[in-house]
Amino acid sequence: MAILIDKNTRLITQGITGKAGLFHSQKCRDYGTHVVGGVTPKKGGTTVDGFAVFNTVREAREATGANATMIFVPAPFAADAILEAADAGIELIVAITEGIPVMDMLRVHHALQGRPNILIGPNCPGVTTADVCKIGIAPGPIHKKGKIGIVSRSGTLTYEAVHQTTLLGLGQTTAVGIGGDPVHGLSHLDVVKMFNEDPETEGIVLIGEIGGSDEEAAAAYIKEFVKKPVAGFIAGASAPKGKRMGHAGAIVDGNAGTAQSKKAAMAEAGIFVAETAAEIGRKMVEAMAARR
């Protein structure tokens, strides 16, 4: 089962002829993902390392039956690439690109309201269903098929949690990096709900960082509805204040947004909170033992 992607996922890459786009298309293919082609405007009809290249997402979908895309298009054009994929009927859109203007993402967010497409990211590492399908830039070999669902804003902390759960023998169902931008697709809460309903997922790792209130929303849901064991971590307890947020931003978030408030919300929800990123895996083991 797992969530979001499986053996039936047929992936295209938008920006496949770029260096990063091609490299990670190859890595995804090596992992076992059905990478069925890619899109680069004006390069349609060519191939690159065996991948068929199309001018538009619609052409690619019609020719290949693609149902997922990963986007490596440069930031100024990435929002339009997301919308193009949505308009072409691609079900799952994974936007890897970082540095997309917030206003562009607001436009995307509102354009996708009420539509069936699922967006992950931007500024995210992607999603991996262990030993079956990988979309994005996560290193494949650290994953191992198992029973933990992982959701994280940070890419490298996703890898950290994946690696630790692999070493501890728990393995993963699916690991989802939702991205660190203020306006993004799937939230912690959305992914937690999916893991909660997935029969193969026996435990959940929830990783967040300072800013916003995504983690608090997920914690509130977990407290009420999730019976599966959950381990959590928040990065940024030692980060200096005021490096990113203005005054009104702090008000919008009320008292939420600090590492302390997020950890408190997690603990309050019965989540096993790791003190350091090195003990995420161990906390998951503890949480699972406690539920037995």
Binding site: S154, G155, A235, S238, A277
Partner: peptide, 9 residues
């Protein structure tokens, strides 16, 4: 950024 913060922590 996440791992960088976690490393500081």
């Amino acid at each position: 950024a996440g791992l960088a913060m976690a490393t500081m922590d």
